[in-house]
Structures are given as structure tokens and as C-alpha cells.
Design a protein around this nucleic acid. Structure first.
Lengths: 343, 343
DNA sequence: CAGTTAATTTTGCACGTTAACTGTCGTAAA
DNA sequence: TTTACGACAGTTAACGTGCAAAATTAACTG
């Protein structure tokens, strides 16, 4: 039978015949406590099923051993749907936090205007991880505000002006190059791009830039007309591709700024009777799980989400400890699948 | 310029010329405080950018306004991959929590043996949501333990012995019926089932049972030989289907216990030169995002994850408030797509 | 105008922990 | 023998809230 009232450190002190503060020290393995006493305290703590009260501990130490994850979704995305790429990141961030002894608090784009107040000031979290795609311009002002407040935070993808160290991101430019080199090697040089070639979405732009530059390095110039804008959803990729087709724009390869776009693009192509990969090779970006389920399976530039999550957490913890943080750029890798492989 | 030191309720009390406890009440809109005083306190709080310290507040009230979500993955699942169905649930649970003013703490299958101690005793969370697929038998003992400890928790899917009220689940049996009725209407009665027809995974079993019973109600008896076991991964579905084919077992329709299995099954079928839906109709379960990306798009029994998440949170909060909780069974709905639709 | 009641506000403590400061005792150096 | 110091353990004071009881003020009655 368990006690209804939860055991406190005083209870342990009582049973162990020592003072409460000795219990506290013993449980945190302070060197100021005799080993034998430590052992006894630990034993009794176990028996009483004692757990340090997080609230009391946090209140006293003025920190929470918790990180907050703020997830920004594309505004058009349907409520229940979350971008699978971010979900993958979520998984690795959760694990990285657990490994470091931190809890993870998750929240979607907060309607509140003051992230710092919501998390740091209220001592709910020691730091914030911002995870989002695309339109960071809207947030630059806010990020600057966080900086001014000396808030501890790291971003995925978005570079904060003059503070690249606060960002962990994939080498999108290099990833675009990988895609281009792959297509070039397959002799597919008449390429379309679906994503966002403006500077509106820095990540998509970098992918495009790397793609374009790599082709130009081979003496191939891409036709700007073969670009269609899309946000990172299947639907958007589908419609963008459809409009390319409708405009009679020809191409023998297609580079999509994300896998979801690529999947939508393939659907549009197949519907139009254009075979993948025979007529058009398709390369995506991200390597979400669905990339290996669709048919044809999708060749894509893989982002290492496991490493990305670990780095985000690691860098944030360094920030919190006021340690120097270095800029982090993760190398992507090309995963060749059916959409660029002729049998 | 913000103060480095965070404002406390004492600071507000000082500026407002009242006592700290009046501030506390004023901020929580207690009727015991004069309206004018309230207004002034709120104003000053805003100016100082004051936020209630969660830790102090939680310590005082002995609760955390936080729920913990424990996610159980299939043991075979790769580390970074999370079952997309659960991710969808995660999204709606997060939102439901936010709406109720609760934070959500996420954790993957804890290696710790004592969930209650990890969350409730340490006051990190007021209650626990258990989310998992399949093999609950391993956990029944643990669930019983949680019950004995009077821990506040709710489960997805798994029924705790004699406590159906602690479970929110989809009407898996009814979903199986839906699938059967659909296939029967299309005159596909020679059905295979891939999943788990033993009682090992209660959810899969219920889906199979409903499927089988609905056919029998129409006078059609399913052949037990046309069953292959699989866990909820694409790979497992692929191999299970392959083994059916390898054993020369014929069928004109296939019901998979989950979409991931169905997607793997389709891959195996197509590889074997069996057309979907012409030769074999395929019906899945869950309606994960990928179901509408694969080709052919997948007909499936949809679980309402939005509602499920809301109910889990709602029921858990009721439990925490010691209010009576009712058993919750959510109705699934059939989504007809390409894998059962002949052009 | 003293006396009673209602409407507010204030005082003081408790929540469970950690950390800084004190205190004790035995042993080694002076 | 005295002093000093290390190795422990105990005492006390926050951390910032929220609640109960006490205290103050205002409002009203006879």
C-alpha cells in the first residue's frame, strides 16, 4: 500500500535520522556527504518511492530543465496535418532532450506575441527551439526582439541577421548541387524547378541557387520560365506542376524544393500521361517517409534529422550555459530511388 | 530597456501600493479585489512584462497544468521514424491541451519502470496520456499498477481491464465492418487480411473481427488461410503480402490492419505484377497523409484523430478533477480512393 | 456617535527544495 | 598543548506564489 501523501525529503530525513538538507545533498551525490550516509538515504528514498518535486526544485534553482519547441506551420496547412519533415525533427529533438535530461514542451505557432514571456519569464522553459519552414521574413522582427531580450533560442533554417550561430540548418545550397549533379550525370539538363525561386523562402531559394549554379558550372543554363512557385504541400506541388504542363512548358527533369511538392508533382505528371522517370526525372528534398512509399519511389536530397535535432538541442544548451556556440551547417546526402532510375 | 531581473508580484505590489497577495488575486481576477485596484495592477503588470512564475505557482497549488504524453512505438520501428498515425494524434492532442490551458510534455517509451513516479510524483505533470499501437499485453500489468496507485491516466486503444472509461478508442470493429461492406458491395468477396488476427493486438483483432463478421452476415465465409501477420510498418506489410503470394494464395481483395501495412502490401502486389485495383482491391485503416499520396491512392477507414485527441485530453482532465468519465468510442468513416475504384 | 456588519485588504505562513552559512569533532601540524 | 583544518552534518533563509485568518476601512443602523 502506497502512502497517499507523497514522500518529501523530510520524510527521508526522518527515517534516515539525518537532517533534510543532508538528504538533499545525498540525493544529488554531493561530495560533502559520507558514502555510508548517502547509501542509506538512497535506499530509503527508493523504498518510499521518493521523487524530487520538480516545481520546488525549479523554483529554488530558477530553471526548469525544460526546453520549449515552437512549431511554425505553413499558414495554409490543414489543422491536423503537420509537415512530416518537422515531425521527423520532432522525434529526434525529443530524444536529444531526453538524453540531456531535459523535458520538452511542445507548442504550435503561439498566438501570443511574446514568446519570451510565455516561456522564459514564466520559467516554463530554459530555452526555445523555433522550427519552421519558409516564410521567415515575418519573423525576423520577432527574432530580433528575442535577441534584444537576451532570450535563449535556436532556430532551424532561418538565419537571424548577423547571428548565424543561432541557427542550425541543412546545407540547402549544397543539397541543390547534389540534385543537379545527379541529373546532369543522367544527362537530364532541361530542368524545371518547383518551389520558390524568390528570396521569400530562404531555404527554398538556397536549394534552387545550388541547383542552378551546379548546372552552370557544367555549362548548362536553366530556363527561368521553367520555374513554378509552390509552398510545401502536396497539393501546392500538384497545382504548380499542372500549370507548367498547361503552359506547354517542356522539361525532362524536375527538381522540387520539398518531397511533398515532389509527390504532388509526380501526381500531376502521371495524370497528364507523362511517365516518371522515363519522360521526366524527379528529385525531391527532405526524404520524408512517404518518399519511399510513393510509386515510383522518390529520389531525394536527404536531410539528417537525427543529427539536426541533436545539434539544435546541443547548441541551445550551450547558449543556456553561456558557452560559445558555433554556426552549424549539416551536410545533406542524395538518396537515389525510382524517380530517377530507369530500369 | 527591460530589467535584467524578472519582475515579481512584489514589484507590482510596490508600484501599485498594495500588498503582494492583492496582486496575486487581482491577476487571477478574484472577486475579492476592488475593480479599480485590479485595473491598476493589471496595467503595471503589463508594463513590467510580468508573468506568473509557473514553478512557484505550481509548487503552491500542487499541480502543474501540464499533461504528459507517453508514446509507445513498435519495437521494430527505426529510431527516427514515428508512426504517422500517432503523429497526427500528437498534433490534435497538442492543440487540445493548448485550448484547455495545459502544457504538453512529450516523451517516448520511457525506459523507466515507474511512469507515475516520473511524472505525477515529481509534479511534472498532472496526468498521463498513453499512446501506442498493438502489443498492450506487455503493459496490462503496468496499467493495473497505475490504477492501483490512483494515477490519472487515459489510454488510446488499449482497454484497461474493467475500466473501459479510461480508454478512448476508435470503433475498430465497426471500421472493419465498413471495409467489408464496401468490398462486398463491389463484389469482392475473396478477401485476404494482413495484420494480426490473434488477440495479441486487440485493435488489429477487432478490425479483423468486424471485417469477418460483416462478411458472414452476408453469407460469405472468409478463408483463414488468407491471413498474414504483420506489425504496423510498410516493410512488414510488404513481406507479409509477399509470403501470401509466394504461397500461391489467391484473393481479389485485401484488407490491411493499417495504412502502412496496406502501402507495403500494394508495393508487393505491384512488384508481383498484380494490378491494384483491377486484380486486387486494397483497403487500409487510419487514413494517414501518405494514403492519398501513394498510387493508386488508398481507400481506407479513417480514424478521426482530431476528435480522438480532444477526447483523450477532455477525459483526462475530467479524471484529474475527479469527475466521472464515460467510455468513449469514436466512429470511423470510410474514405474511398483509387485502390478500390475502377476507372 | 457608539456599535454592528459588510467589503476589502493585509499579514503571515506553507509549498519542497537548494545553497550559503554555522557548527562539531577528530587529527595533524606548530 | 595549542592551533588549524578537513570532513561532515545541521540551521536557516530564500525562491514566488496562493490561501486562510486577521485587520482595517467603509457603510450603515438605532
Amino acid at each position: 500500500m502506497k502512502n497517499k501523501a507523497k514522500a518529501t525529503s523530510f520524510d527521508i530525513a526522518h527515517y534516515a535520522g539525518v537532517s533534510q538538507s543532508t538528504v538533499s545533498r545525498a540525493l544529488r551525490n554531493s561530495p560533502l556527504v559520507n558514502d555510508e550516509t548517502k547509501r542509506r538515504v538512497h535506499e530509503i528514498a527508493e523504498q518510499l518511492n521518493y521523487k524530487v518535486d520538480k516545481n520546488a526544485s525549479n523554483l529554488r534553482t530558477q530553471q526548469s530543465s525544460t526546453l520549449a519547441l515552437l512549431l511554425f506551420e505553413d499558414p495554409t496547412t490543414d489543422e491536423s496535418q503537420i509537415n512530416p519533415f518537422f515531425l521527423s525533427m520532432l522525434g529526434s529533438i525529443t530524444r536529444a532532450c531526453a538524453k540531456e535530461g531535459y523535458d520538452l514542451l511542445i507548442s504550435f505557432q503561439s498566438s501570443s506575441s511574446d514568446w519570451r514571456a510565455d516561456y522564459e519569464d514564466s520559467h516554463r522553459a530554459d530555452g526555445i527551439i523555433l522550427l519552421g519552414y519558409g516564410d521567415y521574413l515575418d519573423y525576423q522582427a520577432r527574432l530580433q526582439e528575442l535577441l534584444d531580450q537576451d532570450t535563449k533560442f535556436v532556430c532551424w533554417g532561418a538565419t537571424v541577421d548577423n547571428h548565424p550561430d543561432l541557427t542550425v540548418s541543412c546545407d540547402n545550397y549544397g543539397g541543390g548541387q547534389l540534385a543537379a549533379q545527379h541529373l546532369f550525370a543522367l544527362n537530364r539538363t532541361d530542368c524545371a524547378f518547383i518551389g520558390d525561386a524568390s528570396n521569400h523562402s530562404p531555404e527554398f531559394f538556397a536549394r534552387y541557387k545550388g541547383f542552378k549554379d551546379a548546372f552552370e558550372a557544367q555549362g548548362v543554363t536553366l530556363n527561368d520560365r521553367k520555374i513554378a512557385n509552390a509552398i510545401s504541400t502536396e497539393d501546392s506541388g500538384y497545382h504548380a506542376t499542372k500549370s507548367l504542363i498547361a503552359n506547354n512548358i517542356s522539361f525532362d527533369a524536375l527538381f522540387a524544393a520539398s518531397d511533398l511538392i515532389a509527390i504532388g508533382a509526380i501526381r500531376a505528371l502521371l495524370e497528364a500521361g507523362i511517365n516518371v522517370p522515363e519522360n521526366v526525372h524527379v528529385v525531391g528534398f527532405d526524404d520524408i517517409p512517404a518518399a519511399s512509399y510513393v510509386s515510383p519511389t522518390l529520389t531525394t536530397v536527404q536531410q539528417n534529422t537525427t543529427l539536426a535535432g541533436q545539434m539544435l538541442v546541443k547548441n541551445l544548451l550551450s547558449l543556456i550555459k553561456n558557452e560559445p556556440v558555433e554556426s552549424t551547417l549539416l551536410p545533406p546526402s542524395l538518396i537515389v530511388r525510382g524517380s530517377t532510375a530507369l530500369k
